[in-house]
């Protein structure tokens, strides 16, 4: 039991389960999953589907944070990616052809890759502080997206494109499979190759890593590139969901939620050791919380406060200081009980 409690995913998982349990107690149908037309429906399935954009962005953010960096431009990259994809589909003669949509997706992802590479260049080659380097694109990116869409919200009707966010495969939402694919790919790349441990080494001690011969520049660069690509895919899912490229609303504040998910998952903002599984749990916590707000009918004016309140509690549940404090308190209460029962009398020595 003690070993399980020491595991770094223990407290994040506890928080997630508690959230689901509270929801289920409040309204038993929360956990209900039904089958209609060979598809699974229910709140939990919605969480799997709706969490996909945040999941992708947070995975990229995890790797960037592990290198001691941060990527504030993820939301802007989402906007650009969506704008690129929808503009290509919108201008094509046949928006419903699979070829058009695939071209649009590939181009959008390539553009996102270029943006990620740009971020990585600023950070790893020019040595600009990550928060400043990515702030540039965070501010400029939405402008670029508006330029691409010509200042309008581009909307399309394209069945293959809508499938990205709304389609189903094997009874489950297609978007969920994108999440799973990203988690698996990142997990394999980081843990089956040495990239993960080299990334951690660079994040913990860049100078020692450099002197040990680690190619820290390319490792940091690749982290931002990965974050760019993942944000680009997230942008496509978002655009597919609303069938429109909204340069202002796409991925708004998602960088903050992604950072939150990474931290909830137990990866330190100081860089170094990171946990992909932790981030996955962190994303589910945030998404469950969002559903809770809708599901329990928290008035929209109050929902930010409610959200913040729950996040503070979740973070406190994970605080080692609080664990120690609670431990001491329990021990004190116990030992006081013990002395009382023996009726100890102090003898001056």
């Amino acid at each position: 039991m003690r070993r399980i409690m020491k595991h770094r995913l223990f407290w994040p998982l506890v928080a997630l389960i508690v959230l689901i349990v509270i929801n289920t107690i409040a309204r038993p149908q929360f956990a209900k999953v039904t089958i209609q037309d060979g598809r699974l429906y229910g709140n939990l399935i919605n969480i799997l589907r709706n969490s996909a954009p945040l999941m992708l962005v947070s995975l990229g953010m995890t790797v960037v944070i592990a290198t001691r960096g941060i990527d504030l431009s993820v939301g802007a990259i989402m906007a650009v990616s969506g704008a690129v994809a929808l503009t290509i589909i919108d201008r094509s003669t046949d928006p419903n052809s699979l070829g058009t949509v695939l071209t649009a997706l590939v181009v959008a992802i390539l553009v996102s890759l270029v943006l990620g590479v740009w971020n990585g260049f600023l950070v790893s080659v020019l040595g600009i502080q990550p928060i400043i380097a990515t702030l540039v694109l965070m501010l400029a990116g939405r402008g670029v997206a508006l330029l691409i869409t010509g200042g309008f919200i581009t909307t399309v009707n394209s069945t293959p494109f809508e499938f990205v966010a709304s389609g189903y495969i094997l009874m489950l939402p297609f978007a969920f499979f994108i999440s799973v694919a990203a988690i698996t790919a990142l997990g394999l790349v980081e843990r089956r190759t040495a990239l993960g441990v080299l990334t951690e080494a660079v994040g913990i001690n860049p100078e020692a890593s450099r002197l040990a011969g680690v190619r820290s520049r390319i490792i940091i660069w690749s982290a931002y590139a990965a974050s760019g690509v993942l944000s680009g895919v997230a942008g496509i899912i978002y655009a597919s969901n609303i069938r429109a490229a909204d340069a202002n609303a796409a991925g708004q504040f998602i960088e903050l939620y992604a950072i939150l998910a990474v931290v909830l998952g137990g990866t330190s903002l100081m860089g170094g050791k990171f946990s992909i599984a932790g981030t996955v749990v962190g994303v589910f916590i945030i998404q469950t919380l969002n559903s809770t707000i809708l599901f329990l009918g928290v008035p929209s004016a109050r929902s930010p406060v409610f959200f913040a309140f729950v996040v503070v509690i979740v973070v406190m549940i994970q605080s080692p200081q609080l664990h120690r404090f609670a431990g001491n308190l329990i021990r004190q209460v116990r030992s006081r009980g013990a002395t009382d029962s023996t009726g100890d009398v102090e003898v001056p020595s």
Binding site: A194, L198, E200, N205, L211, A212, G213
Partner: peptide
């Protein structure tokens, strides 16, 4: 500051040199 990667294990620190040579 320039030698040990303090949060990594002894094993990871020892192989860091050869691992860096071999790439990914």
């Amino acid at each position: 500051e320039e030698g040990i990667v303090s949060d990594l294990t002894v094993a990871e620190n020892i192989v860091l040199g050869i691992q860096a040579r071999r790439g990914l």
